[in-house]
């Protein structure tokens, strides 16, 4: 086995894992704060990519990177106000059912709007080359995505840990009823959290488009891994999502290279194993949904 092959798969794993982390972060703050398992997260990821495709025609890649996730976040906020907010406080199963139906309908909206065939989407010119890392050549775009998401995770961490709004969000994950009693406008908080979560899904969609192309079912390929990441890391846990995402990305990428037959199976095996042995996940707190 060549070292460079192993290394490049490892890098691929980290890059994929980073996308999972973005998705999982959005899902986990929504799940932690409102108790809603958002099945429509995958389709909003796809929306991110499709909007980027539209916007990039006018503004180029970076305009799309900036705008498309914002549009997705706004759509998320509208969906939250109009639909999701109605199931708060009910059995969590209703949130799951609602967003399942929503995902089904929205995926069809994509097919109506853009057709069933895949669309091409390329990285900006200066990132489409390969970079010499001495031991191997690696696509510049993937490296850039890696760095960008690392920065983003740092920014998110700063927001959640160091700003007042972020502290309110974290408190909401702990106990949203108590936060309401303390005088915070939870209605606005919930809409904001849903917006932030879906913004992250849209952003992940834009970033993944040049790597894996754009198609209506692209959300399917990331929604399940993202759920698994949350289960691995624990609901509502920041570092749990990061660790879980990286673990899963690396495991799947290495399997694709060395035991392709079980590549997709592997993540479900990992999930089942963790859930059976440690249901709250690696970093999760006891009690949430358990």
């Amino acid at each position: 086995m060549e070292l460079s092959l192993l290394l490049s798969q490892l890098f691929n794993g980290i890059a994929t894992g980073m996308l999972y982390v973005l998705m999982a972060m959005g899902l986990t703050i929504i799940m932690g704060t409102m108790g809603v398992v958002n099945f429509s997260h995958g389709v909003l990821f796809a929306f991110g990519a499709y909007f980027a495709y539209l916007i990039a025609e006018k503004t180029g890649f970076f305009g799309a990177l900036l705008l498309a996730p914002v549009v997705v976040g706004l759509i998320g906020m509208v969906l939250e106000r109009a639909l999701v907010a109605r199931v708060y406080g009910k059995d969590p199963l209703y949130g799951l059912l609602l967003t399942f139906g929503l995902a089904m309908a929205l995926e069809e909206v994509i097919r109506i709007g853009w057709g069933t065939a895949g669309l091409p989407f390329s990285a900006p010119g200066f990132l489409s080359s390969f970079i010499d890392l001495k031991i191997m050549f690696y696509p510049a775009y993937r490296l850039a995505v890696l760095g960008f998401i690392l920065l983003l995770i740092a920014a998110l961490w700063f927001f959640l840990e160091r700003t007042t709004t972020g502290k309110i969000v974290r408190a909401g994950i702990q106990d949203s009823v108590m936060v309401g009693i303390l005088g915070v406008n939870t209605k606005a908080l919930f809409t904001g959290v849903f917006g932030l979560g879906t913004f992250l899904a849209g952003l992940a969609g834009v970033l993944s488009a040049p790597m894996s192309g754009i198609m209506p079912t692209m959300g399917d390929n990331v929604i399940m891994p993202s759920f698994i990441v949350i289960i691995l890391g624990g609901v509502g846990s920041f570092w749990g999502s990061v660790t879980g995402g990286l673990m899963l990305g690396i495991i799947v990428s290495l399997c694709i290279q060395f035991v392709p037959a079980v590549a997709e199976l592997s993540m479900y095996l990992v999930m089942a194993l963790v859930l059976l042995v440690r249901p709250r996940g690696l970093f999760g707190e006891e009690g949430l949904f358990e």
């Binding site: 398992v37 199963l93 479900y268 949904f289």
Partner: peptide
């Protein structure tokens, strides 16, 4: 396992069958 975790586990085991059938 309860509630959401149970639902997620059923997906996980179901998808294992799915991937076995497709591979």
């Amino acid at each position: 396992k309860r509630g959401i975790y149970f639902a997620m586990l059923t997906i996980a085991f179901g998808q294992m069958f799915y991937f076995i059938a497709s591979q």
